[in-house]
Write a protein that binds this DNA or RNA. Structure first.
Length: 168
DNA sequence: GCCAACGTTGGC
DNA sequence: GCCAACGTTGGC
């Protein structure tokens, strides 16, 4: 039995890597490396598989927002930036034999016409249990339910229809 | 730039 | 194993 796709939210500060950077990358694909948190690592290593879907979230910008979606093209594998001296995410405890940190590859699926700002997510009752919206939550890789994922897509479609009507 | 919330580190 | 100190995240 094939496993049903699962859903995730990845945070990125657009100043360091935005969804447009993903669009500009070769094959619109990037390795999601540099995650240095054990809970997020466990998701990357154990649970995130090809064909899973990802909400691409822009943090530390005004407004914080879901900018689009991506699809996982390669599941968990060791994050080699961890043992590259001089890399911003270098971790001296790591080696190829003892990788500690993991990454997955994702490919751009869609950039929303209108990003869905955080406050719009908060106003949506169907999203009230989203990990992102919980007090104190700051996991950079987090699970999303199928219903939450589809609700965000619905908001994106609605926002896009409105913006087209409003323009010229 | 502030600061609340959270994770990690290290002395004991 | 506790917990204070420190570092980081990320919304505001």
């Amino acid at each position: 039995m094939p496993r049903a796709p699962q859903y995730w939210l990845f945070k990125s500060e657009p100043e360091s890597f935005s969804i447009r950077d993903l669009a500009a990358a070769p094959k619109k694909t990037t390795g999601w490396d540099g995650v240095r948190n054990y809970q997020a690592r466990n998701f990357l290593r154990d649970q995130i598989k090809p064909d899973d879907r990802v909400l691409f979230y822009h943090s530390s910008v005004d407004p914080p927002a879901v900018a689009g979606t991506a699809v996982v093209v390669r599941g968990g594998h060791p994050d080699s930036t961890a043992w590259k001296k001089g890399d911003h995410h270098f971790d001296p405890k790591c080696s190829p034999e003892n990788p500690i940190w993991y990454t997955v590859d994702i490919r751009l699926e869609e950039i929303f016409d209108e990003p869905i700002p955080l406050d719009a997510l908060r106003r949506e009752p169907a999203l009230k249990d989203m990990v992102l919206l919980q007090r104190g939550s700051r996991l950079s890789v987090q699970p999303v339910t199928k219903r939450e994922f589809e609700t965000v897509l619905k908001l994106a479609r609605a926002g896009s229809a409105k913006s087209k009507k409003g323009k010229k």
